[in-house]
């Protein structure tokens, strides 16, 4: 039996597999299919100070080995999240990772105060959403504003650890990672989606109504592995790795690159049981390869 427990920013996860924000809603739908307690944690849909309608449809396009999406942070607002969703998720034996997105530093501070008071286990600071005009990625592509957003959340989070979610749409991700770490981030998560675009050549219209969207799925896995490896070599805080994970071997790859835990997202759309399957495959990988504790995989890559 492999010891599947891992620790992320001081939070013990029963296993390293969590689901990625935006792919799992608040868990209601997938709870009809499996026990959410099978997951190490749940990064819930990103929440904002006020309710948001999001972008007009179409919001999704398929790509070679992936998808583009531009949902635009549709959510019921932080108060509804705290009042209705946190109590629902508390019924399961899994960690709740809130994902918050502000337009201003004041909004990040307020969101942090509210979700930490609601009793979430970890706060993921979204400074990397490519699909909203204000805020979002604007905070995540500049080291100073990434640090400022992280600091605003950290100061208002009480004892709840803070994890900053990094955008891959930058020249040097390690620069943003160091800035977030020095502003007090207890962990970092990466990668958010890569900005992309597809055009219907018959109509000459972009397939997505927002014109551009975020690329995810197996196509981005090598980018995620490279960025996790670079960031792991640049900071001391633990990492939640994500980007195109669809199998236990993919999860092992991200852990070897330096992640302490791994999120599954887009793979859920092809296989609603993907997160549970990835966890089982990872466990089998450990058993087959004589790995006694899954945490031994973190950073275990032997670079040339």
């Amino acid at each position: 039996m492999t010891d599947m427990r891992v620790t992320l920013a001081g939070v013990e996860l029963k296993n390293p597999i969590v689901v990625a924000s935006g792919t799992f809603g608040f868990g209601h739908e997938y709870a009809e299919l499996f026990d959410l307690s099978e997951l190490g944690g749940i990064c819930v849909k990103g929440t904002t100070v006020s309710q948001r309608d999001g972008n007009p449809s179409p919001r999704i396009a398929e790509t070679p080995s992936g998808i583009l999406n531009a949902v635009g942070l549709q959510n019921p607002g932080v108060d509804a999240f705290c009042a209705e969703e946190v109590p629902f998720l508390r019924k399961f034996d899994t960690k709740i990772i809130a994902n918050i997105s502000g337009n201003t530093l004041e909004e990040y501070a307020l969101l942090s105060e509210k979700v930490s008071a609601a009793g979430v286990d970890l706060i993921e600071v979204n400074i990397s959403c490519p699909n909203v005009k204000a805020g979002g990625m604007a905070f995540g592509t500049d080291p100073r504003s990434a640090a400022a957003a992280t600091d605003a959340v950290k100061r208002n989070a009480g004892k709840v650890p803070v994890m900053t979610k990094l955008s891959p749409n930058v020249t040097d991700i390690t620069e943003i990672a160091r800035a977030a770490e020095s502003a007090g981030a207890d962990a970092l998560s990466l990668i958010n989606t890569l900005l992309g675009m597809r055009i219907d050549v018959r109509t000459r219209r972009p397939i997505i109504r927002n014109n551009t969207g975020g690329l995810s799925g197996p196509a981005v896995l090598p980018v995620a592995v490279r960025m996790v490896w670079q960031v792991a070599n640049a900071v001391k805080v633990p990492l939640l790795g994500m980007g195109g994970v669809a199998s236990g071997a993919d999860a092992a790859e991200l852990m070897m690159a330096g992640a302490s835990a791994v999120a599954v997202g887009t793979a859920l759309f092809g296989d609603p049981y993907a997160a549970v399957r990835v966890r089982k495959e990872l466990e089998e990988f450990c058993e087959t390869n004589g790995v006694a504790a899954v945490r031994e995989l973190t950073g275990a890559v032997r670079p040339w």
């Binding site: 809603g25 739908e29 299919l33 849909k45 449809s57 919001r59 999704i60 999406n69 609603p272």
Partner: peptide, 27 residues
């Protein structure tokens, strides 16, 4: 009909604007 992702209601990509019955709308 709308372009869909998960198909179960979690990913919010197949959004449609609906009337809430009180003069407002929601997705």
């Amino acid at each position: 009909e709308e372009r869909m992702g998960c198909g179960v209601g979690a990913c919010l990509v197949c959004a449609v604007k609906l009337k809430d019955g009180n003069g407002g709308t929601y997705m």
